[in-house]
Amino acid sequence: MATEGSKPCVYLQDMEEVKKVFARFDANGDGMISGDELYGVLKALGSDTSPEEVARMMAEIDTDKDGCINIDEFADFCKNDDSVDGGAKELKEAFDLYDQDHNGRISATELHQILNRLGQNCTIQDCTRMITSVDVNGDGYVCFEEFKKMMGNR
């Protein structure tokens, strides 16, 4: 998911949003993200990230080398550094995690599955409302272009 120098969460501009995402990764609530917690969230999202890749990600993000990622390291990692592609690769990777059937569209059902895997208590109707709020062309799905616009508005 992350490669050297990449910023997989470039759309997290607001510190409150960073804290919410951090809390999802910090499964035991100790204020630190361990390698096991990072691996668990990636797996829940459907990523086939290997333990070796997780170790590389941890090494990249854990700047104080204490073996865990704290909120400051996570926030630094999530800052938009205006990279060459503007984060397009990372946005596509995020989109692909939600697009479970790989048809180029995120349905309310796919959104519901992912959010429930992440421990969110929401209904299909909630997810339908979320989809409708960003569904510019009215087809009932979120395509990558709509997803990019939605993430750009955060």
Rank of each mutant, 00 (worst) to 15 (best):
R105K: 15
C122M: 13
L115W: 14
D72I: 15
T132H: 10
S34W: 11
P8S: 03
Q100M: 09
M151N: 00
N28S: 08
V134T: 11
D99C: 12
L12R: 01
V21P: 05
D96N: 13
K79S: 04
K148S: 07
F147P: 02
F77E: 01
G35A: 00
F22L: 06
S6P: 10
D14L: 15
G152K: 02
V54H: 00
I71M: 06
L91V: 06
S83V: 11
M32W: 12
L111E: 07
R56P: 00
K20L: 02
E17G: 03
D81Y: 09
R24S: 08
G35P: 05
L97I: 05
I114D: 04
A75P: 04
T63E: 11
M15V: 05
E4N: 11
E145V: 09
K79E: 00
D99P: 01
L115A: 11
S107G: 02
M150W: 12
Q100H: 03
D26N: 13
N103G: 05
M150S: 06
A108D: 14
D64N: 14
V84C: 10
C68M: 14
Q113A: 13
D30T: 14
N153H: 14
C68A: 11
D96V: 08
G87H: 01
V10C: 05
K43E: 07
C143H: 06
C143M: 03
R105W: 12
D99I: 12
K149Q: 11
G152L: 00
I71W: 02
R24E: 12
D76R: 13
E110F: 04
I33S: 02
S47V: 00
A55M: 10
D48A: 04
Y141T: 06
D72W: 10
D126L: 05
D66F: 12
E90R: 03
T109N: 09
S34H: 14
K43R: 14
T109D: 15
N137W: 08
I131A: 07
N116F: 10
A23L: 15
L45G: 04
S47W: 06
V21I: 12
R154P: 00
D62L: 03
G87N: 07
G104S: 04
L38D: 07
D30C: 13
M58T: 04
R56F: 03
I124P: 06
N103A: 01
N70F: 08
G152Y: 02
E73V: 06
K20P: 08
A44D: 08
Y39M: 14
I124E: 09
F144I: 05
K149Y: 13
I69Q: 02
Q113Y: 14
P51N: 13
T128A: 13
Y141M: 03
F22Q: 05
Q113P: 07
M32Q: 15
F25T: 05
K148E: 11
R154Q: 03
K149E: 15
E52I: 09
F95Y: 00
D126G: 02
Y11Q: 10
Y11F: 09
I106E: 01
E17L: 06
F25Q: 07
N137Q: 09
F77L: 05
A94V: 02
S6A: 10
D30A: 12
A88I: 07
C68D: 07
T49C: 11
D48N: 11
F77Q: 03
T49D: 04
C68E: 10
D36I: 12
